[in-house]
Design a binder for these strands. Structure first.
Lengths: 228, 228
DNA sequence: ATTAGTTTGAGAACTTTTTCACATTTCTAA
DNA sequence: TTAGAAATGTGAAAAAGTTCTCAAACTAAT
């Protein structure tokens, strides 16, 4: 095992492995080889081994991995043995949907507050979660020990919200606004851009044959040197 | 310009470029160089040129790109000159939020139908959009000329829904269920896994220093050869 | 025309990520 | 014990993706 930086591709896969292991634990499977894991969940066994090896030697040659033990390791590595307190900024359709998103509840993420700038919404509740004034974000985020912020506001407001969030000292941010945000230093920003994802699907419909980036490629475009 | 396959990384960036160009068009900018585009939107100029070059020669040396012309090219390349008709499967919180998602409306995507298995929901409307029985998906998707399906059901039902969708001949699918789905052949499946994204953020909080995958890396894990 | 300045398109170099391949370790059974 | 089978961990190779560099193409000014 060598000390190097871990890519996001790896951490994403770690999350997937954890999900698979949880399934195996639920089924009562005691040990699993990288090959069985790979076959069962459509993964690549060499990649599983390489990913895991970044973090330690969890397997036993000739045997494989002890499912429960590995599950516990991954849980710890991903920081999922601790509870995370999430604030969602933007109490629109998406923000309120995310508040109730069972994926957030299932794991160690609790949505503890919603924020919005709309006077009408402030003070209302979505389920158990109250909507606060975005102006109070800094104070409340400290009081409620929020460590993850979700930006679910229209693109035009995202930059300002990001600044407020950084100001408050939040280090992990998930952004749904379809706009390029940038952060510096010891902060992690993850953007989920639904528009881009959709348009990428649209490309596929327009240029069929690019199945999963593995097919051959048809090309449009023409030679042209002067303004027409 | 050479004929090769286009990676999804490229098509995602094409969508971003298009967004930038639309902004420039709105401002009345006539021409732009890859360098100006890069500086302004925090991109890499060489990458912009390389990405565009996959599709044709759109620039003029010494000048740059004609903004409106390039915008039109990208729109066509991404298939956004045609209207796309979207069905959302799963009329829960996420599905209904997506139905109203303004990002879907802004561009060339129209949500024309919702589907669910819940008797209570079938027949109701979300805004203008009616909720239909998932059993009728195949028939209705043909009648309504649906070309994009969004899977927004719990993980446990996602596989079955996927099969229904493929059965109906849909070629472009966006999946929000946190479960590994696989498709074969001439079909594009794009999974947006919120759980994985969150857990990847959690990793960052647990192992600070991995800023944007560029920092140094702290490692946990221990040598261990025998079952403890 | 010629020159100086700009900017593309594309090959080369570099970096990152994935996959391969196998020595090594462990288990099982005779 | 030893032999054979299984499966890890890892270095090396391959593939994919990004960045560098610069000849060639164009504009504008003289």
């Amino acid at each position: 095992m060598k000390v190097e930086k871990i890519s996001e591709l790896t951490t994403n896969r770690m999350s997937v492995y954890l999900r698979c292991l949880n399934e195996l634990v639920a089924e009562g499977t005691k040990t699993v080889s990288s090959d069985k894991l790979a076959k069962r969940f459509h993964l690549n066994s060499a990649q599983i081994r390489k990913d895991l090896a970044y973090f330690g030697e969890f397997g036993v040659r000739g045997v494989g991995y002890y499912v429960e033990e590995l599950r516990d390791h991954l849980t710890k590595i991903l920081g999922l043995n601790k509870q995370h307190r999430v604030a969602i900024i933007g109490a629109g359709r998406l923000g309120t949907a995310l508040t109730d998103y069972y994926g957030f509840k299932q794991t160690n993420f609790t949505v503890v507050a919603l924020f919005d700038a709309d006077r009408e919404k402030i003070g209302q509740k979505v389920g158990e979660v109250e909507i606060f004034d975005i102006k109070d974000f800094s104070d409340l985020s400290k009081r409620d020990r929020i460590d993850v912020a979700v930006i679910a506001v229209p693109a035009a407001f995202a930059q300002k919200v990001l600044e407020d969030v950084l100001e408050a000292g939040i280090k992990a941010i998930m952004n749904f606004a379809p706009t390029p945000l940038r952060v510096e230093g010891d902060v992690k920003l993850k953007t989920i851009d639904l528009t881009t994802s959709l348009e990428s699907l649209s490309y596929f419909l327009a240029q069929p044959g690019n199945t999963n980036g593995k097919g051959p490629k048809p090309v449009s475009g023409k030679k042209r040197n002067k303004r027409q």
